[in-house]
Design a protein around this nucleic acid. Structure first.
Lengths: 103, 103
DNA sequence: CAACTATTTGGTTATTTAGCCAAATAGCCA
DNA sequence: TGGCTATTTGGCTAAATAACCAAATAGTTG
């Protein structure tokens, strides 16, 4: 079991934590600042338990950190570099592209 | 069906194309330059058909472009910005982290 | 054209994931 | 304490994913 395999699995887990439309929406929303679960639930429009599972998965991958204050639990991005990470996406996400290099 | 939903799905598809240990390994290898499928098969160590499916999925997402020359098909990264994208990962991938912000 | 090589496609199966509902947990306030 | 409210957890089902093998496709060369 090569150590490099573990490295790639960990990195893949980080990416996987962003590889879902709802999770991406959450990540982009959190670029503006922290939000609590119920706000994120409204944003995503899914069952609270579903959102909660997305969030704990993202936290476990190291993408988000959470912070409990009173009844609410606030989530925020673990890392500022995620902003650049996410901004790179639009260059790749095919609008009509595919014929010419995106950047 | 909100347009924004489509946008997030497309972006998620791009990310998903990198969200697998083998695909990440492939993407990093291609940062050095193009490679043909059989070389990538050796690199990944999986069945050629498995590798081929990973590659076509990445191409479809807009992450890779391919180029057939003779019997071989060469793949390369569609976008230089992927380098930065990938380099951001190490900052997030938990080594022991999780206690302090990564960057 | 026939044999060969590189790659993709189709089929199958096992595993993982996403969603919902219901129940459990935890902090707050009367 | 007892009842709220916010969030997580467990259980379940449907759908998506990843892997392999076998067969099909396409280009090459004798």
């Amino acid at each position: 079991m090569p150590a490099s395999k573990t490295v790639f699995s960990k990195r893949a887990a980080v990416i996987k934590a962003l590889a879902h439309p709802s999770r991406l929406l959450i990540a982009e929303a959190l670029m503006e600042g922290e939000m609590c679960v119920c706000d994120l639930k409204d944003l995503v429009g899914a069952d609270m338990s579903t959102v909660s599972k997305h969030l704990s998965m993202m936290r476990q991958a190291g993408v988000l950190v959470s912070d409990k204050r009173g009844l609410n639990i606030y989530y925020r991005l673990a890392c500022d570099c995620l902003g650049d990470f996410l901004r790179c996406l639009d260059q790749l996400a095919p609008k009509k592209a595919k014929t010419k290099p995106c950047c």
